[in-house]
Design a protein around this nucleic acid. Sequence first.
DNA 1: CGTGTACAGTAACAATGGTTACATTAATTT
DNA 2: AAATTAATGTAACCATTGTTACTGTACACG
Lengths: 210, 210
Amino acid sequence: MTKEIEDAYSFIFEDDLIQEMDEVGTIKSFKENEKIIEIGDNVTSMPLLISGAIKILREDKEGDELLLYFLERGDTCAMTLSCCLGHTKSEIRAVAEMDTTLIMIPIEKMEEWTSKYKSWRNFVFESYHSRLTEMLDTIDTIAFLNMDERLLKYLRDKAKINQNETIQITHQQIAYDLHTSRVVISRLLKKLEIKKKISLQRNSIQVIDL
Amino acid sequence: MTKEIEDAYSFIFEDDLIQEMDEVGTIKSFKENEKIIEIGDNVTSMPLLISGAIKILREDKEGDELLLYFLERGDTCAMTLSCCLGHTKSEIRAVAEMDTTLIMIPIEKMEEWTSKYKSWRNFVFESYHSRLTEMLDTIDTIAFLNMDERLLKYLRDKAKINQNETIQITHQQIAYDLHTSRVVISRLLKKLEIKKKISLQRNSIQVIDL
DNA sequence: CGTGTACAGTAACAATGGTTACATTAATTT
DNA sequence: AAATTAATGTAACCATTGTTACTGTACACG
């Protein structure tokens, strides 16, 4: 068990901390598309990503979704972190983008480690920094880009996260993530296919040149 | 000088820290609409708001702006904080929303105070938390609301920040903040006036019932 | 092998927001 | 007061996105 934690975190944390993580942390695994955190959930432990990937979503009152960003190995969810420290409920939904393993750290350790380990403090600040940057990027995307450009970016990110030129997804699912309708996505995808940037199959999209 | 710092921060920080702030901090004042931080600036000190208000803006490559949020007394800019700690350049522009006084803390003190003062650590985490929340709110607004609703929210926020029912602003300036065109704003404002929610004068808007 | 279901293609139309162009009015300058 | 400038009002039109509705097609399953 220590092995995986070490693989993912040894270059960030000192040995003492990894040791302690191993003692107090619980390993949890999630299947692709399994829900990890729901909006309104009380956050009682802090997830660190060991392997796989997670997508973080926001929802409005009507239940409409919007993809905020993806998290990969070595990442943690600063939103959740923020909730932990502020003892508030989750503002976001987290869904496993693929089969994913996490280590859950009880929130009591947060305070403690923050004073005790410099590497942990740096990790926390570093996480906040990446998440703020990520959020700015999300804002840029929805504020300054048209739907066709957003779709391109989405396909690029998705192919990168899955490390695969072939994206397994339906048009409807993309529409949910980008908060638009299936018809709009189908229309734009078809245009991209005509431009030879992608090739469309049922339930999957082959990235050619984005 | 200590007086103003105390007024704004005594209920958050211990006396030792306030004392130290007073020693190492520099007071800076900005006139309404004066630029405080520009995108790409190297951030060499950390601003804490003593009085007044600041608006934080994002810009795309074409120079189009978008208002992210306002900061008030007792707030700090977590984006700047994040830049300080990560030694990166500013991702945002900060403009004085009204006459504003700041205390600038040299970034060398960040690390030091973070280990030394619990109240400072809490303040930093608290700031990150508020800013993440604020950013989520911004995302909700641009992703889920139409322009008429965004305009309403803008007028509400603006009236609240300025503690004044009469907002001194031109349609063009609102258009910049909301990243749209003047004609669109004039059109929507006129609709709001017809609905008796506001009354329009040249260079100002009177809030009646939002 | 036929049928049902989920997915995708597409046309037609509506709604929202962006653009251009010009008129009108208020403030400022000379 | 006349002239200039800045701000606002408004119409007409365009582009993008959203909606409805219907068709065709791949796939799963009995």
